[in-house]
Design a protein around this nucleic acid. Structure first.
Lengths: 231, 231
DNA sequence: CAACCCGATTGATAAATGTCAAGTTTCCGT
DNA sequence: ACGGAAACTTGACATTTATCAATCGGGTTG
């Protein structure tokens, strides 16, 4: 099996500290696969056969109920998803599909659980990762329950702006998916962008210019306890 | 220190399988405290000095932003809260206050992290607990994003009804807190109860009678991937 | 017992958000 | 370059939800 991707996986915090033998055991059972865009990788409700690692491309995590669908997160390289289901051996809560051509490493869930029992460093890393994921989801819930859609958009733009370190940037996803991620309709998102114009936001296609960061910040009132996804 | 509460704590899945010596080490640094109703236990943003275990009473987890406040969860005996913050040694994301007279065990976070490094059974239990918490929050997010408030209420009532195994039961919390928990205003909750009358729901004070479970179920469309908090 | 307080309810109204139905633009593949 | 599909936008309208104000009612307390 090609070693090329293993390096990237090994450097993930989740795998970085574990014993070499255990890592190799995991990789022995794993395999890489290339997927075209818009391919369903998993469907919510299914049993978690594999832990997934995105090596390149990107993956949308979403969920459906009663004919409605919502985007819950986007996974970029290099990181894993559906760790909790794998560990608990419980059904996936989210579906996943590739957004673009993507390279995914599939690690059998059984192997993950087996190595988890043997390798303390791996167990610790899993705890750290799960805590992180948990906290991100809690922040997300607060974002949804405490803010209007306009406020959510404003804070999203500020976060993106900080990520790039610039006052202007391109949206990393389609507007329709952004809308779904922020919990609104595409139409509402269009109007929300308009609604932020008075706060110095100019939208040209997928390009965003924040000409008055102070005003936008005053409106968005970002909080580390909601918007800082690093802690 | 009184042993009376230790038994209950020891039987928690989180502590049940760990070594006796490690458990005793945890309990040595811990202490119990009795709190009156409506007392703030922790405030979001603070450093996680203690892992909290509710031994009796109940605790409301909530969060505030920009003058708004929302209830995120209620903790009943015997269980822990703010495990993720303790493990990550990161600021609390939620505030906590007692709802009634409550008995809380406070375990120093440092001790938890120290024992976590030494006791594999404990580490495993933490992973299981965190996965569980993570999945509950994800289900909550889906509930919020995919359903209207009427649908959330209907599913909440069905869940309560199943919990008691009866077609009637009493609400376990004030309606104002239920409203906040479900992501709506108290006024809206009143109207939502009215809106469920056609589906066989009768409200008398805090007593709920579900006279037509089939109709309510047809409307609520419960899903294990949202409403079953046990997996 | 009465006064009061607080939560719950109700009605009227406003704001936020979603839906539907055009258009318009952008993007892709032939 | 062209044609077509899909995304985006816009306007009109419906629905959902929040807000404000008033009232009701149960429970507590002096």
């Amino acid at each position: 099996m090609s070693e090329s991707y293993e390096e990237g996986v090994r450097q993930l915090p989740l795998f970085a500290e574990m014993g070499q033998a255990h890592f190799e055991a995991l990789m022995r059972g794993a395999y890489v696969q290339n997927f075209p865009p818009r391919i369903d990788l998993i469907t919510e409700g299914e049993a978690p056969d594999f832990l997934h690692v995105v090596v390149s491309g990107s993956v949308d995590l979403f969920s459906s109920w009663n004919g409605r669908e919502t985007s819950l997160a986007t996974v970029y390289p290099v990181s894993t998803f559906i760790l909790a289901a794998t560990i608990k051996d419980a059904p996936y809560l989210m579906s996943a599909r590739t957004l673009e051509k993507s390279r995914i490493v599939l690690v059998p869930s059984e192997d993950v659980r087996a190595v988890f029992d043997k390798d303390n460093a791996f167990a610790r890393a899993i705890v750290t990762e799960l805590s992180q994921c948990y906290r991100v989801v809690v922040k997300n819930t607060k974002n949804l329950k405490l803010r209007t859609s306009l406020e959510r958009l404003a804070n999203y733009l500020l976060r993106q702006s900080q990520r790039t370190g610039l006052g202007e940037f391109d949206l990393t996803m389609e507007k329709r998916r952004l809308a779904s991620f922020l919990g609104m309709t595409p139409e509402n998102l269009s109007r929300a962008f308009k609604g932020l114009e008075p706060h110095g936001v100019t939208v040209t296609g997928s390009h965003i210019l924040i000409s008055d960061p102070e005003s936008l910040t005053r409106f968005a009132k970002p909080s580390a306890l909601i918007d800082d996804h690093s802690t």
